[in-house]
Write a protein that binds this DNA or RNA. Structure first.
Length: 641
RNA sequence: GCUUCUAUAGCUCAGUAGGUAGAGCACUGCCAUGGUAAGGCAGGGGUCGCCAGUUCGAUUCUGGCUGGAAGCUCCA
């Protein structure tokens, strides 16, 4: 036996010849509290241990502190569970993990929590913290674990799924014991500042067919200032919400007479959208795309042919029946484009064929998920379908990725991730059933991405029903993870629509289809752009680029001349000739986020100049009118940010 | 769709323990002609989201519907 000394003075016994894993396991079992989390200089930090050659252990703090935070939040979640148990003895516990920021716990309880309940729970938690109850870890064989949790059906379900023969670990703090893998802090008193955030329903195991439980989200920190900072951050995110900015800047509106998920673009928002539409179409034309217009309605048989009907009909608006016709609003544009491809004989010399469209699609999004411009029921896609030979897949896919990267560069977007969205093999209903086809498509796509040197992660069950996708994911102000761009590989629809091209050998071959959307939908893209820029769009995209502000009415005439000259080079400009003080006009223009304000007084008239004020940097001094015209023209032409 | 919350002037929000409402901003008029984020005075504007029920009486209480919010499910 070797005695291993720990830095805190305690020791454990280890058998000679033990593997490092055995040692680590023993340490984490026996001394989890010490070995995985502790207090350093008053702050909770994660601790790591190193087994030295002489069998002594060195414990040191772990910098990234992520694991430390997790233990901190997870411990707080147990405190919350204990508080709920004290207040509602009949409660059944589900799970209570730590998340990116904070933690939640799901409870099965007679009635939903009210605000008063939450206040009581928070107070009870504070009591438990004050009691500073020691947290102890122990483990049991499966049968005893089940016996211990005999009143907790959800915990029993979890225990039953753990592998046979392994000891099951629990954490106990006073009168409360929870099934848990840890790690945890030493005692409840280590938690300092807590705040319950929101409560809502959540399905057991995230399955809508299961019972809905009551979830409480909460956060905790060792310092009051950290909690304050976090709440501040939440408040800032609220200010950045595209729905708030969209209202303030008159970008879009909704009306109950129009309906949920059906926003209307106001002149300001419509200007931004028009510029985005032109921007992306111009880029596509440069890259060899041809654009088409196709109807938003189609015969339902079109979607039966494509396979959308089987996989997608629940998300579509209901069929409109007439004498002998059944029409539907389209949820996507692929079938229309397939028919355009098939409208004439195609040669391998014609490929790749790139068909693009700014197309309106209609999806019956569930009422709980519609959200401003982010999730709507009528959307406009920046869609295109590339018809390629198998040999062209790689280069065409690479071209799309290049286009995505160049667009993100133009807008200066940095916080996005690439997701390789694969099917879930076990969910036969959701995906077209052809293992061979899926394996080819998925492995080919993975190969392409690896070759492109793209940093991506894989997600099972996120594919389209017809094939795997490369999605570009971003996080919204509210923290939703949503897709902007997407590029999808499809071997199915060419088969469904019997697409062909004549190859070099004079025989018919089947093309492959690449579906792609760069801005995704204009609606969602706008919502993202609004949140990224906080409504202060770069000059080239601003609904109003320049506001000319005469100080008094004697300068109105000259101001109109300035306006005329700017209009002549296509600048969106307005004179504010209202009878108001200059400070008032500036304040208003500033709140409207107009990039440039030109203050015009007698001095400017005399010098044939303008006094430039930028939205960003304030007063920039006087400038010759012609110099300003040059400056703003260049800024617009280069799409400067 | 599910759970909870929510709806008062164009906007942001007070308020009425059940007796038909108020502020600031915005809007209109007048005065002030003002040099880098709100000048002064006056005025107009609401069947208190919609439909039922309880009540002598409902904006207020109850139910339903519609819209909105958070989360879950689903998704560009």
């Amino acid at each position: 036996m070797i005695k291993v000394m720990l830095k805190d003075g305690s020791s454990i016994d280890i058998e000679e010849g033990s593997s490092i894993l055995d040692v680590a396991k023993k340490i984490s079992e026996g001394l989890a509290r010490v070995a995985t989390c502790g207090e350093v200089d008053g702050e909770i930090k994660d601790l790591r241990y190193i087994l030295n050659k002489d069998c002594s252990l060195t414990i040191h703090t772990f910098d990234s502190s992520l694991d430390g935070k997790k233990a901190y939040w997870h411990t707080t979640s147990h405190i919350m569970a204990q508080a709920v148990k004290r207040l509602f003895p009949d409660v059944k516990f589900a799970i209570g993990p730590s998340i990116d920021e904070g933690f939640y716990y799901d409870f099965d309880i007679e009635r939903p929590f009210t605000d008063e309940d939450k206040e009581k729970i928070e107070n009870e938690m504070k009591k438990i913290i004050k009691e500073d109850i020691a947290i102890e870890r122990f483990s049991l064989p499966k049968s005893e674990a089940l016996e211990l949790m005999k009143d907790q059906p959800y915990k029993q379900e979890l225990i039953n799924e753990l592998p046979e023969g392994e000891e099951i670990s629990f954490y106990k703090q006073g009168d409360f014991t929870d099934l848990c893998a840890g790690p945890h802090l030493e005692s409840t008193g280590k938690v300092k500042y807590i705040k319950l955030l929101t409560s809502s329903g959540a399905y057991w195991r995230g399955n809508e067919h299961n019972k809905m439980l009551q979830r409480i989200y909460a956060i905790s920190y060792p310092k009051a200032s950290q909690l304050e900072e976090y709440l501040q951050l939440l408040e800032e995110a609220k200010q950045r919400d595209h729905r708030k900015i969209g209202k303030d800047l008159e970008l879009f509106m909704t009306h109950e007479l129009v309906g949920s998920g059906l926003p209307m673009y106001l002149p300001n928002g419509a200007t931004v959208r028009r510029l985005l539409e032109r921007y992306i179409q111009d880029k596509e034309i440069e890259m060899g795309y041809s654009h088409v217009y196709t109807p938003s309605l189609a015969n339902v048989d079109l979607y039966k042919t494509s396979g959308h009907w089987d996989h997608y009909k629940d998300d579509m608006f209901p069929v409109m029946k007439f004498d002998n016709e059944e029409l539907v609003l389209r949820p996507m544009n692929c079938p229309h484009h397939m028919l355009i491809y098939r409208s004439k004989m195609r040669s391998y010399r014609d490929l790749p064929i790139r068909i693009g469209e700014l197309a309106h699609d209609f999806r019956y999004e569930s009422s709980g998920s519609v959200c401003g411009l982010e999730r709507v029921r009528e959307m406009c896609q920046n869609d295109a379908h590339l018809f390629v030979t198998p040999e062209q897949i790689k280069s065409e896919f690479a071209q799309v990725v290049k286009l995505i990267l160049s667009v993100y560069e133009d807008f200066g977007f940095k916080d996005y991730t690439f997701r390789l969205s694969l099917r879930d093999k076990d969910n036969k209903e959701k995906y077209f059933d052809d293992d061979q086809m899926w394996e080819t498509a998925e492995s080919q796509l993975r190969e392409i991405l690896t070759e492109l040197g793209l940093n991506f992660y894989e997600a099972k069950g996120e594919a389209a029903f017809y094939g795997p996708k490369l999605d570009v994911q971003i996080k919204t102000a509210l923290g939703h993870d949503v897709t902007i761009s997407t590029c999808q590989l499809d071997f199915l629809l060419p088969q469904r629509f019997e697409l062909e091209y004549i190859g070099e050998d004079g025989k018919a071959h089947r093309p492959v289809v690449i579906h792609r959307a760069i801005l995704g939908t204009f609606d969602r893209f706008m919502s993202f752009l609004i949140e990224e820029t906080k409504g202060a769009f770069p000059t080239w995209l601003s609904p109003l680029q320049v506001k000319v502000l005469p100080i008094s009415d004697s300068q109105v005439e000259y101001s109109k001349e300035v306006e005329k000259q700017l209009k002549a080079i296509g600048v969106r400009v307005k004179v504010d000739d209202r009878n108001e003080k200059i400070g008032y006009k500036i304040r208003e223009a500033q709140l409207e986020k107009v990039p440039y304000m030109l203050v015009i007084g007698d001095k400017e008239i005399e010098a044939n100049a303008v006094a430039v004020r930028s939205r960003k940097d304030g007063d920039a001094g006087q400038m010759k009118l012609e110099d300003f015209v040059c400056k703003i023209k260049q800024e617009i032409d280069t799409k400067a940010r």
